Structures are given as structure tokens and as C-alpha cells.
Simulated assay, not measured.
Amino acid sequence: MKNGDKVEVLPNDEDPDGEPWHMILRRNDKDLLAAREEFWEKVWWNRHMIWLEKLANGEEKLKESQKTIFATARKAARRIERKYGKKNLGWDTFDWGMVNGKLSALNWVLGDEWDFLDT
């Protein structure tokens, strides 16, 4: 529906020519999707920072085949930093665990199978 509610439209058994019933399945779908996008971007940014750290300390080396991916990822990381502010992205391990958990929960609410959640 326009307000973001997800509904199932059911026929009106009492009056077949009357208005159908709108059974609410989930409220505020737009808000849930926006929150999932935010958490996904923040989790992705954190994983990108871990990759940068591994490259910087020599734990990993950038392969030739990864250079294009790396350039695209740097642009995406900058976009996320501009969107949320770099101060709002650097957290400790506990906070990152909470964000990952929230992302998993939102994915489950939005229909992903629990066994396949990978955040």
C-alpha cells in the first residue's frame, strides 16, 4: 500500500460485491527496507575497511584481477562515508556484531530463510 504496509487482499465473503478486506501482513515495509539498506551499507563498508587493512599490512596482496573491483569498491566506500559520515562508521567489535545481527533480523523479517542469512 502507499503507506508502506504489505497486505493481502481477501474477498469479502459476507458481500461478494462489496469491498475486499485488506489483511495486514507487515507494517512499514518502506522503513524496513530503508533500515536494511543502511545496515547493509555499513556492514559492507566495515568489510571493505578490513580488506584495506589486510592490504596495508601485507596480509593480502591485490591481484591484477582485483584492481577493477578494488577501484569500484573505493568509490562505493567514499559514497557510504559521505552518506553517513565517517564518524558514524567506526565502531568496536561489539557494535559491529549488533549491526550484523540487526541486518540478519531484518533480512529474516523481509523473507530470507534463517539458514541462509549471510551478513
Rank of each mutant, 00 (worst) to 15 (best):
M1D: 13
V7K: 00
E8V: 05
V9H: 08
P11L: 13
N12S: 09
D13Q: 12
D13V: 14
E14W: 10
D15Y: 10
D17T: 14
D17C: 08
E19F: 06
E19L: 10
W21A: 10
M23H: 07
I24N: 08
R27H: 12
N28S: 09
K30M: 06
K30V: 04
L32P: 00
L33Y: 10
A34R: 06
A35H: 05
R36D: 02
E38R: 13
E38F: 01
F39P: 00
F39R: 02
W40F: 13
W40M: 07
W40D: 12
W40N: 12
W44P: 05
R47M: 04
M49R: 09
W51K: 03
L52W: 05
E53W: 03
K54A: 14
G58L: 12
E60N: 07
E60D: 11
L62G: 10
K63T: 04
E64T: 05
S65T: 09
Q66E: 15
T68P: 02
F70G: 00
T72S: 15
A73T: 08
R74N: 11
R74I: 01
K75A: 12
A76N: 08
A77C: 04
R78T: 03
R78I: 00
E81W: 07
E81D: 07
E81Q: 13
R82W: 08
K83A: 14
K83H: 06
K83Q: 14
K87F: 04
N88M: 02
W91C: 04
D92H: 02
F94I: 11
F94T: 15
D95R: 14
W96I: 13
M98F: 05
V99D: 00
V99R: 01
N100P: 02
G101D: 03
S104F: 09
S104V: 03
S104T: 04
A105K: 10
N107G: 14
W108K: 13
V109Q: 14
L110S: 05
L110K: 11
D112N: 13
E113Q: 13
E113C: 04
D115T: 03
D115Q: 04
D115S: 02
D115Y: 01
D118Y: 02
D118I: 01
T119R: 00
